[in-house]
Design a protein around this nucleic acid. Structure first.
Lengths: 334, 334
DNA sequence: CTGAAAGCGCTTACAG
DNA sequence: CTGAAAGCGCTTACAG
């Protein structure tokens, strides 16, 4: 392993000159010696030691991506996380950063992971709202959250218009003649994302004189999709349309419907959220609220890079638009 | 940021004693002082500086996971990669390792990534057969490849029985009365995995007196699924069954079949490979060759950890079994 | 444009 | 069981 020192000796100059030449500090080394040094480095297969650089310069070029670990499977089992993470890695790597991944269960692990390697920034995937204040306080580097509804000011956040997504779903149902509706989501985690989707949905219904009762807001982390469908169908006025908080949950509803010999959209219409490839494989094709995951990843990286280059970066928030993708899972009742 | 030195001063001992106490070197520090030091570290929120440790001890506890970058989308867009990577991160993190991800296009990037951070080991996802010799030569740390068919001895590799997978598909078709068959795969990359799946498939057919002609081996990286189906259907004796080299390709065939108003399995039977969740969302359910991705990730980590702990680890290869999961995409012609 | 000195925060290797 | 010294491979800050 060649070091700066080795090169310096062979070149007959000091380590500092080598360091400057290799780090491309223009006009600080004569072109002549710079060229000689670069050739020598190439020849010796010199690879800078990032640990040493990190230690001396306090600049690691490491970005941490932090995902909340899950109990079932792993976080990358969720296609949303996988797509987003993959794109973030591509973009940051292109800018010369190294990516370290941390799956965390407890927020104390976050500070450890970031400090231990002197990370220069971090991207968060998953629900951290309750801990954001603490995380921010412990780590004075650019932190970019995604889908956060924390009320902490001064955080950078990239999200989508979840409320509008809920509105779009409601309007689509209404415009197709549906008036008896229900919402289905994992409600146990007090996620802002889900709260807003529901709020947009129920507000729009309310504007049209329809109130969502408690029985029409189904918690799929408590009951299975099958139990939910059975319960809804048994009710006095069973819903004709179901708004699922994600495509993945819509899929579970499809499966349960199949088991119960309910036909979609004949017996039950469904709208999902995300527009994952999954929605196109389902039969009938899933009508869903689309979010642009690649764009979200790009915006996240842009903000991060900007805050990394300006030492006194101010926080920034971006909320991306959503749109409804009509396919075949909603029946026209008119 | 508290350092060892800070703790040493407060404790009235040397840095070495603090280092030993915190690294849990039993019987090298009196219990009394060790306890005092641990409390102090806790109190000061001490977080060891991994760069410094890496530099001094030449042990980074970093494992690199290297994926081949893709031109379309990103590597984690492929559910197989995402599932595998997620599990590997979970398992290695549990053992106290840090995970750095590298998407590479050129193999020269590999050595740079590994050496720069002094990685202790690496896991490879994707096709690296042609470069394995060079990679091994440049990096004398445990390297675990997956799905490799390189003829280089002494590499550690975790794969599956691709040949058997091909046999199982052929036998299933035969036992359901199919005799006119075709194989569909991205054939441009000379991947050992695909070669073996095809070999198992065609060998089994040959044993039963059926030869796969050139036209029955379709390259989906040259023609679209639709073009392939059109071509096959137009042939004098169109195949009744198609073996796809992955579930993802099977899905493309499903879509193309839909566009051409071909019904699966009535007009065409299909068998996939991998058994991704996708296969269950398709209608009809996809009959496929299942590989256990979680188990594969676990075996990969086991081998890696073993080689990391024994300094003179010998290379190890594990080939996992596959099985056929019958669903509804193959028609019984008998 | 170039270099000598000091130091980043740890551990190794030796001495006691 | 404990510590003083040296060094890992770089960069910062200063001097010329």
């Amino acid at each position: 392993m060649a070091t700066l020192k080795d090169i310096a000796e062979k070149a007959g100059v000091s380590m500092m000159t080598v360091s400057r030449a290799l780090n491309g500090e223009q006009n600080k080394v004569s072109n002549e010696t710079a060229e000689k040094i670069r050739l020598l480095a190439e020849e010796l297969g010199y690879i800078p030691n990032s640990s040493a650089r990190s230690l001396a310069a306090r600049s690691s070029r490491i970005i941490a991506v932090i995902l909340r670990d899950t109990d079932t499977g792993n976080p990358l089992t969720d296609p949303y996380n996988a797509f987003f993470l993959g794109r973030v890695i591509q973009l940051l790597q292109r800018e010369g950063y190294y990516i370290m991944i941390h799956f965390v269960r407890d927020f104390s692990e976050i500070t450890f992971g970031l400090r231990s390697w002197n990370a220069e920034g971090a991207v968060f995937l998953g629900l951290f709202d309750d801990e954001i204040r603490q995380i921010r306080q412990n780590n004075r580097i650019p932190l970019i959250f995604t889908d956060s509804y924390s009320n902490v000011r001064q955080i950078s956040n990239v999200g989508i218009d979840d409320y509008k997504g809920g509105c779009l779903a409601a309007r689509f149902f209404l415009s197709h003649g549906h008036t008896r509706l229900a919402f289905c989501a994992p409600l146990s985690g007090k996620s802002g994302v889900i709260t807003e989707r529901l709020r947009g949905f129920s507000d729009t219904l309310k504007e049209n004189g329809i109130t969502l009762s408690r029985e029409q807001i189904c918690n799929i982390s408590l009951s299975s999709a099958r139990e939910i469908l059975v319960g809804l169908k048994r009710s006095p006025a069973p819903p004709t349309g179901l708004f699922a908080s994600s495509d993945h949950i819509a899929w579970q509803l499809y499966k349960a419907a199949g088991e119960l010999s309910l036909s979609i959209p004949e017996d039950l219409s469904v709208i999902g959220f995300d527009d994952l490839p999954l929605g196109q494989t389902l039969v009938p094709g899933l009508t869903t609220i689309r979010q642009d995951i690649d764009l979200k990843a790009e915006r996240t990286c842009e903000i991060l890079l900007r805050r990394l280059s300006q030492s006194k970066g101010t926080s920034e928030t971006q909320i991306l638009d959503v749109e409804l993708i009509p396919r075949a899972s909603v029946k026209d009742l008119r």
